[in-house]
């Protein structure tokens, strides 16, 4: 049992070392490297699709990390690097889709649903206020029946 726990702990400890960026890629300039990291986290690895290029061990991810660093070193802005990759791989390369005509539903959808739900709940509450409804008065039949029951009981 202890051995299994120890093994699990060791495996968990090994996880971060599997992450993509390898020491030989790291730039000497810490500011540039920081920009490369933040770009790397928002660029999709096209091979694995749901990992960023920073997280991925795929060959292409490594090539793209090196490319990002080269472009930053040659003076590109973050946006220029993004544009360069989007021109070649399409917007799919961005893990965070930009807000534009084709993606407004994606961005606004959840809020629209929330709003629709709130309106629905609000309307329902207005029609059925909790604990404030006057019970409708008994009809004549009901009154007669109630009297009958009372007499029976007595």
């Amino acid at each position: 049992m202890r051995a299994i726990v120890a093994l699990i702990i060791m495996l968990l400890a090994a996880v971060p070392s599997l992450a993509g960026v390898t020491p030989d890629e790291i730039l000497d300039d810490p500011a540039l490297e920081e920009r490369a990291r933040s770009l790397g986290r928002e660029l999709r690895c096209l091979v694995c699709q749901n990992q960023s290029i920073d997280d991925s061990d795929a060959d292409l991810a490594r090539d793209l990390r090196i490319l990002v660093r080269e472009r930053l070193e040659s003076g590109d802005s973050d946006q220029q690097v993004r544009d360069y990759l989007v021109a070649r791989y399409g917007e799919f390369v961005l893990l965070k889709p930009p807000v534009q005509a084709s993606t407004w539903l994606l961005w606004a959808g959840p809020f629209a649903l929330l709003l629709a739900g709130a309106v629905g709940v609000g309307t329902f509450m207005r029609r059925h206020p909790v604990g404030m409804t006057e019970p409708s008065p008994l009809s004549n039949d009901e009154r007669a029946r109630l009297q009958q029951l009372d007499i029976d009981k007595a």
Binding site: L46, V47, D59, L60, D63, L64, L67, R88, Y89, G90
Partner: peptide, 13 residues
């Protein structure tokens, strides 16, 4: 050899 032209072509596989 280094896959750079591949990147220009948007190759991912």
């Amino acid at each position: 050899r280094d896959g750079r032209a591949g990147i220009e072509w948007g190759v991912y596989g």
